[in-house]
Design a protein around this nucleic acid. Structure first.
Length: 218
DNA sequence: GTCCCGTAGC
DNA sequence: GCTACTGGAC
């Protein structure tokens, strides 16, 4: 099974890329926006995060955002859902960033493994958010796993490791260690999950139909 | 009413 | 393992 996955993971990438093309991720202007967006998008539709980002626009600077009262932050990000808890998560993240003088350059000096552990220690940042920040804001070669990844590959018929890290290592073992490839693949997975592999899948036009177990009868 | 690029707390 | 967290789009 694992062998099959190792050979098919790159093939699936090619098929998705041929179907959807380059995704140009992450949709943000700056690395700081990527980090903020990664927290706000937790279990939330990206569309609602966009509205919050618009409200945040005047404060899209770590120092300014850090000094916002938590209630103000709550109101600004309201549209992204879970606004009370996310405002606290953002603030916790900024408190950590303060250790680096709110400077991206200082983050760039740090080892990926160390950064990952520090991010995971922040209340409100779990493995997916940490890895999204590492890959899309800090350009580290870390493959991001999310619910879509599990849904798609489970439907393809793979017996997936249950632990986040194990699934991540499987993808990393199957692919060339390359930031741009990891960036594009995760983006394609999200796109595919939104267009075809939804909760109620749209199978007839699916680019992966020929290799999918959902295929039968639908 | 259901679902959304999760996480923490019990 | 289960549930709360929250609003908005469809």
């Amino acid at each position: 099974m694992t062998n099959r996955m190792l050979t098919e993971i790159p093939v699936v990438y090619n098929q998705l890329y041929q179907t959807y093309g380059c995704q140009h991720w992450w949709p943000a202007e700056t690395a700081f926006e990527v980090m903020v967006g990664a927290i706000l998008v937790q279990n939330t539709a990206w569309k609602n995060v966009e509205k919050a980002m618009l409200q945040l626009e005047p404060y899209l600077d770590p120092v300014q955002m850090f000094h916002l009262p938590i209630e103000k932050l709550e109101q600004l990000i309201r549209s992204s859902g879970f606004f009370r808890i996310k405002a606290r998560r953002l603030h916790a993240f900024l408190t950590w960033f303060k250790n680096y003088d709110f400077k991206m350059e200082q983050l760039h000096c740090q080892d990926t493994y160390l950064l990952r552990n520090q991010l995971l220690a922040i209340n409100g940042i779990g493995p997916e958010t940490a890895d999204s920040i590492l890959l899309y804001a800090l350009h580290r070669p870390v493959f991001v796993i999310d619910a879509y990844t599990r849904r798609i590959f489970k439907r393809l018929g793979f017996d997936l490791p249950k632990k986040y890290q194990d699934l991540r290592y499987l993808f990393e073992a199957a692919l060339v260690k390359d930031v741009q490839l990891y960036n594009e693949y995760h983006a394609l997975i999200v796109q595919h999950a939104k267009v075809h592999c939804k909760v109620k899948p749209i199978c007839p036009t699916c680019p992966l139909l020929d290799r999918c177990e959902q295929n039968v009868g639908s």
